[in-house]
């Protein structure tokens, strides 16, 4: 666990792979949704085009320094989250910068991008952006709670906060996964997962057509492009954490892509069949259903 310069190159490679994976995966997910609805759907490379288009826009505005820095915070949060967590178990190349900190670092770093984004949206001066932030923050407090409890439960179970060690403990057989050794904690964590993936029924934060799109209302051009990049990167980074903690991690990129896709689809599948919750409803939902499961998880360890 010491630093060597070559790790920077390796990390860049991880980043490159994950961004491309994320761009294609999210497009595929949308395409699947379209096919289910009887449509042809977007081309799988549509995300790339949109990204290029947004980088290529000519006129841009800025509402101030924090507005400018907001997307930077956001993307830094996404990249950092990815790079502070080992991506592929057992691979020297894809350990990234996980020597900097353990699970706790990853959990708290999630807020880095959120904070920056919220500040940027705040400085845009748009009231609806502020409403979106208020909704998002209010919802995330309740949604993250089961995760915190689940993480606590499994770190007690494995007696470590080191992600690599947690993954190591799940190797060998599929029944060594936390999913099977500690199903309650996994269920609790999946509450948080569904709650923070910005999909229905928990997407009142960006509720288009109501508060146009929430925090990013004023964002456009390269700002938006950075946020789009984060939008494909961040969920994958988050799924990687869930994968490492509950689903046995990944030992190669093929396993990685299958697992990430499958876990991601959980939120998609739940999302397509549920209408939207209001914020207070989702808070109550998490306190009523997510919290007891989490408490059960830590009591059962």
């Amino acid at each position: 666990m010491t630093f060597e310069w070559i790790q920077i190159a390796y990390a860049a490679l991880t980043l490159f792979i994950v961004i491309n994976y994320g761009l294609i995966m999210t497009a595929v997910v949308r395409k699947i949704g379209a096919r289910v609805g009887g449509r042809y759907g977007i081309p799988v490379w549509q995300n790339y085009i949109d990204l290029v288009k947004n980088f290529a826009l000519r006129s841009k505005i800025s509402h101030g320094v924090m507005f400018y820095l907001g997307p930077v915070f956001r993307l830094t949060g996404g990249i950092g989250l990815l790079l502070f967590v080992p991506t592929i178990y057992g691979s020297v190349m894809f350990q990234n910068f996980s020597f900097a900190g353990d699970l706790i670092l990853a959990l708290y770093f999630i807020f880095f991008g959120t904070l920056g984004m919220a500040l940027g949206a705040g400085e845009s001066g748009h009231p609806l952006a502020a409403i979106g932030v208020s909704r998002g923050l209010a919802q995330v407090t309740a949604a993250e709670l089961p995760l915190a409890l689940a993480v606590f439960a499994i770190s007690l179970q494995y007696q470590t906060l080191n992600i690599t060690e947690i993954v190591a403990a799940q190797q060998g057989s599929i029944f060594n996964w936390t999913l099977f050794t500690n199903p309650v904690a996994t269920v609790a964590a999946m509450f948080a997962f569904v709650g923070t993936m910005m999909r229905s029924p928990f997407d009142v934060v960006i509720a288009p057509q109501e508060i146009p799109i929430g925090p990013p209302t004023e964002y456009h051009s390269a700002y938006l492009a950075l946020m789009q990049t984060n939008r494909v990167l961040f969920p994958v980074a988050k799924v990687v954490i869930y994968m490492n903690l509950f689903f046995g991690g990944a030992t190669n990129w093929a396993e990685f892509s299958i697992k990430v896709f499958s876990i991601y689809m959980v939120s998609v599948l739940i999302g397509v069949v549920h209408p939207r919750f209001r914020v207070e409803q989702s808070i109550r939902f998490f306190l009523k259903w997510g919290l007891p499961v989490g408490v059960l998880a830590i009591l059962m360890v």
Binding site: Y40, Q209, P212, T217, H220
Partner: peptide, 22 residues
Amino acid sequence: MTPRFDAYRYGIQWRPTPRQAN
């Protein structure tokens, strides 16, 4: 937006804010 015409396949999408629309 419906399956019959499905404009999305041509890269056409709707955005809720002018800042993000072309």
